[in-house]
Design a protein around this nucleic acid. Structure first.
Lengths: 219, 219
DNA sequence: ATGATATTTGTTGTATACAATTTGTTCAGT
DNA sequence: ACTGAACAAATTGTATACAACAAATATCAT
């Protein structure tokens, strides 16, 4: 037994494609050829097209009439806006989580933070990266609002490639760590506004950092 | 020449259907029959299906395998979560708008607020409703973040039917008015945190009000 | 008459066929 | 060599055909 819920092919294809795109399997601006995908997935064009239609709504791809669907690259302005929105959503999650977080979740948070610290001293960027993700996911979850959680996760995923670059900026990891500790403290104390403020600042990219990010992107 | 931008039929159909659903032309739980829609729109099933695929991603309709797509009714829990998220998004818009709002926008805001007041004293709920909407849209816009603006607008639209019920609660309009004035004041002074806090409270539905809303829904 | 089972009907999911349009290529003509 | 028109190929959008499945209805044994 494989699927408890029977799914349409187009659904499977849509999520598969979404993953692929977020993983960066396709170049930005690349066209997603329907016949190529259909042979690749071993189905006809119809379910492929339906999958692509779904993806357009999530902003990952853009559909141009009679030209095809292309994987979308956010420009600098859009990128700034996305990061700003991310900061606001994180802040909201933090605000609510401070009011609702459970003791066990707090413990997991400290654990994830510990792994961050270990990874940092060991200089293992990838490990740090993963533990950092866990840290944030816990906060989203503990907001107690599944819709907010989903939406924040989505944006988090979308910004993943850029966040990765962000972390490579020199000296970012130690600063991020100390911010984490402050955040845990605020959540522990139930200081919602402080948690929100800290998380907002944690995610926000100020001018100079953003220019670093942009220059790194052009490579 | 009709369309400056050539659009696919499925796009037109998708937005048309979205409007219809939000306007409440379809019963909640009603199935959207593909052949019926195709004859109605005068096209084949294919573009209809593609339109429906798009709608699934926005949460307005739900697709059940081999059964069809149904207009979705958020349950009480989801409704609470949606309103809470709305409050957070409004707060974010307000926070940013307080830092960025222009003088002319402030003036428009006061103007919309004036119309609200007139409508209130005249007891014209519909007029009040419309002016209130203008008021909030201005704030979304003045956040200066078009993505945040779009997302907030979307949720605003989605919650429209319920907001309407909310306003009919006795004594809601005067309270709403006084909150508006405080919000304008905070925005004028550039007090971002206060604006955020006020807007959050303005949108949030507390326990009792929510029960009113639910009971009104059941009719 | 009733409950179970077969049949019919309606609807969705997928494949294929065709039309519309864009993109690429060839080949005069200069 | 370059331009540009004409043609060819590729690709998307739409329509239709068919298959898979679900629900409704009819049939039949008890």
């Amino acid at each position: 037994m494989w699927y408890s819920e029977p799914m349409k092919n187009s659904d499977i294809i849509a999520s598969t494609l979404e993953e692929s795109i977020l993983r960066g399997d396709y170049q930005t601006g690349e066209r997603l050829n329907e016949v190529a995908l259909s042979t690749e997935f071993g189905v006809s064009r119809t379910p492929i097209r339906e999958a692509l239609q779904k993806l357009t709504k999530s902003g990952l791809v853009e559909q141009i009439h009679r030209k095809g669907v292309f994987v979308r690259q956010p420009g600098p302005v859009e990128l700034i806006e996305l990061f700003e929105m991310m900061a606001e959503l994180e802040a909201s999650c933090g605000r609510l989580a401070a009011l609702r977080i459970s003791e066990v979740a707090l413990e997991k948070l400290r654990e994830a933070n510990g792994k961050c610290k270990i990874a940092m001293t060991a200089g293992e960027a990838d490990t740090y990266y993963y533990a950092n993700e866990v840290f944030h996911m816990i906060i989203y979850r503990e907001s107690g609002n599944s819709i907010l959680e989903q939406e924040t996760k989505r944006l988090h995923q979308r910004l993943k490639p850029y966040r990765r670059l962000q972390l490579q900026v020199r000296g970012r990891m130690p600063q991020s760590m100390s911010e984490h500790e402050q955040i845990v403290e605020a959540l522990t104390q139930g200081e919602s506004d402080k948690a929100a403020q800290l998380l907002r600042g944690h995610v926000t990219i100020q001018g100079e950092k953003f220019r670093h990010l942009l220059s790194a992107l052009k490579k």
